[in-house]
Design a protein around this nucleic acid. Structure first.
Lengths: 114, 114
DNA sequence: TTTAGTACCTTGTATTGCATAGTATATGAT
DNA sequence: ATCATATACTATGCAATACAAGGTACTAAA
């Protein structure tokens, strides 16, 4: 049952962080959801579809992303997402927010030497 | 309205992280809520009462914390929280979880140098 | 025709941080 | 004595988000 608590905490700690990672990944080039999931997995960040799709829709509705359809020779068409100018600005703020959080946590937990 | 989005993200990013910070703070000695809030503020981590009190109760119910009442000469009695043995073990796992997350985010966002 | 693989979408749930409001104790000013 | 202020703890309702589970649809190979 302790494992369950840690697993829950892992999910909680991802909140807000995933959107930062996704915008950052898209800042280096357009990508479609399955590709994004793959990139995240390479960074040992598990994101499932039920999380990613609503998140991408939200970011698009916020004007941070746009998308276009592109045919695939090996299945259904892919939805390629692209970072907008507003998205780029927001990414800059997210980066600052994340780094401030890391600095704060390091200080609060006494790991501010490095 | 962009400011509101960032403020929301800041709140989201705290999820799961606050319990780690609190357990860590208590690992260096017992403390009562107002004192914890003060310590967090020094690390530039804003935590309000409506967040902290339910959180402490939850951690106590999980067996990670215990508490004792102590009289104060300048107001109502204080509830001093203390980290239990189980809490100490859990803190170790939280520390690992947090560091893995930071490493993952650094990699996903391309800041894995250093 | 069926099976497998790829890709996208939707709904409901649980957790958690926050806003807001409230209760109670001790001290100091009127 | 009474009222205001500061300290300290508690309770309720809301909003946001990651996840589980299930579903639709297109392509290619058996």
């Amino acid at each position: 049952m302790k494992e369950k608590n840690i697993e829950n905490t892992k999910a909680q700690m991802k909140k807000g962080v995933l959107e930062y990672c996704i915008l950052s990944i898209l800042s280096s080039g357009d990508a479609y959801p399955t590709e994004i999931i793959e990139r995240m997995k390479q960074a040992r960040l598990v994101v499932v579809e039920g999380t990613l799709y609503p998140l991408l829709t939200r970011l698009k509705n916020m004007g941070l992303l746009s998308y276009r359809w592109e045919e695939s020779s090996s299945g259904p068409p892919r939805k390629y997402y692209r970072l907008t100018d507003i998205g780029e600005q927001f990414l800059t703020e997210l980066e600052k927010t994340w780094e401030e959080l890391v600095a704060s946590v390091n200080q609060a937990t006494g790991k501010n030497e490095k």
